[in-house]
Amino acid sequence: MIEARAITKRYKDGTLALDGVNFTLNKKTTSIIGRNGAGKTTLLRILSTQLLPTSGTASINGLDVVKAAQDVRNIIVSIPQESKPINYLSPLDNVVLYLSARRMRMSEAKEAAEKAIKTVGLWKVREKISDELSGGMKRKIFVAMAIASKSDVVFLDEPTTGLDPLSRIEVWSAIKAIKGQVILTTHYMEEAQALSDDVLMMDKGKILSQGKVGDLLKPFKGKVRVESTKKKSHSYKVGNTYISYIGKNEAEASVMVGDIIKPITLDDLFIKRGVELEY
């Protein structure tokens, strides 16, 4: 279980990245969603003992991330955003090196690495140098590290950013094989929807909402999203597009040439809250 109480982070340049956030995360997989600069990465770096908070406390399974950082490091894995495997090493060597950093014995590390590499579907390329692998395969090396470490809590910072849709689905399958609690940040709403039991929505260093995907989408029940180039009543302007949320029947009855009707996804929560905050 992860708990944060009044966590604030102000960088040396004055930027307020986190503004007194409070939450409890106890579900198997939680996605932290938010726009660029929302504070997702800062939050993950504090929870994974890479960054000190300005004030507030956070704990992982009862261990304080500041006072008991070394003990926290025993039970977590943190995969940074845009991390790349060491390009001249094979997937297997990358995982073994990581496990040795976790003080695992070499024989044990090799065995655990082989098992994890099989689990994420990289067995055929286990000896190839990582430079020759696709983007999706490279990301799967990090998921293999998380699996092989058998950690209680795994932090994944934007694990699929920049990947094509097929690679993304492959990485999702690999993430689902992680046994510990998974906390991931993403701005792909379908990723949060596909993987999480719990969603934490952030903007400008604050938590906007938290809950199951279904619960968060309750305000949209029975509605669809209509994207139009013309202004409609109660519509939100995003760029040159007007977005409105109306009942399905009403939408079909009032549809105009050029309108697009879409089913509700987490994107809509993101758009609605984001626009409301912006304007």
């Binding site: 003992t49 490091r73 025993n74 940074p80 991390s83 390009n87 003080r103 590290m145």
Partner: peptide, 17 residues
């Protein structure tokens, strides 16, 4: 390069190394 491009250093920081 490990610190800035590969983020390998961040990966290692969150261990007991």
């Amino acid at each position: 390069q490990f610190r800035l491009d590969d983020r390998h250093q961040d990966l290692i920081i969150a261990t007991k190394t």
